[in-house]
């Protein structure tokens, strides 16, 4: 079976670990638990052409305390840029990160995940900016680790994009 490494990256507390836990273990917890360094999980996704084992690298959120290393992305076949729908600042971080990664890794398949879709009242992202990003070719999915919406789909889509690339 083919194995692919994917990374989840974004600001701290955007819900990267929650997405992975929902996807791998079908669990969700409201409690925020910060990640230090990297945690690697595995899960097989079935896409029409074949099964793919995803090696999911859940990375520590980006902030002044975290130390992101180039090595973390080595061998990655694709990545998720994770953005918190309630924190516009996290969109800025995602944009900066995408620019950096593109410089480092070249054109790799990626998907921007807007998390916490269930918190509709607290949504603060500028829809125009998101539209512009989509126009420039970004694939954006709105997810909720709490309800599970689009979580499976996100991983499935990234696997498909990786195999198509």
């Amino acid at each position: 079976m083919i194995a692919k490494k994917i990374c989840l990256i974004g600001s701290f507390a955007v819900g990267k670990t929650s997405l992975v836990r929902r996807f791998v273990e079908s669990i969700f917890s409201e409690k925020y638990q910060t990640t230090i360094g990297v945690k690697i999980d595995k899960k097989i996704v079935q896409i029409p052409s074949q099964d793919v084992q995803l090696m999911i690298w859940d990375m520590e959120g980006r902030d002044e305390f975290s130390q992101h290393r180039t090595s973390y992305f080595r061998g990655a076949a694709g990545y998720f840029l994770v953005i918190d729908s309630t924190r516009p600042e996290t969109l800025e971080v995602a944009l900066e990160t995408q620019e950096e990664l593109q410089g480092q890794l070249g054109e790799l398949p990626f998907i921007a995940l807007i998390t916490k879709r269930d918190l509709t009242e607290q949504r603060r992202l500028d829809p125009h900016r998101l539209a512009t990003m989509e126009e420039s070719g970004w694939e954006i999915l709105e997810t909720s680790a709490k309800t599970g919406i689009n979580v499976e789909r996100a991983f499935q889509r990234l696997a498909e994009k990786i195999l198509d690339s």
């Binding site: 925020y32 959120g61 600042e89």
Partner: peptide, 20 residues
């Protein structure tokens, strides 16, 4: 270590929301 980083990020998160 986790506890320290957690605390720091919780404070940073609260500050970020307040600032917003």
């Amino acid at each position: 270590r986790q506890h320290v980083y957690q605390k720091a990020r919780e404070i940073a998160l609260a500050n970020e929301k307040l600032k917003l």
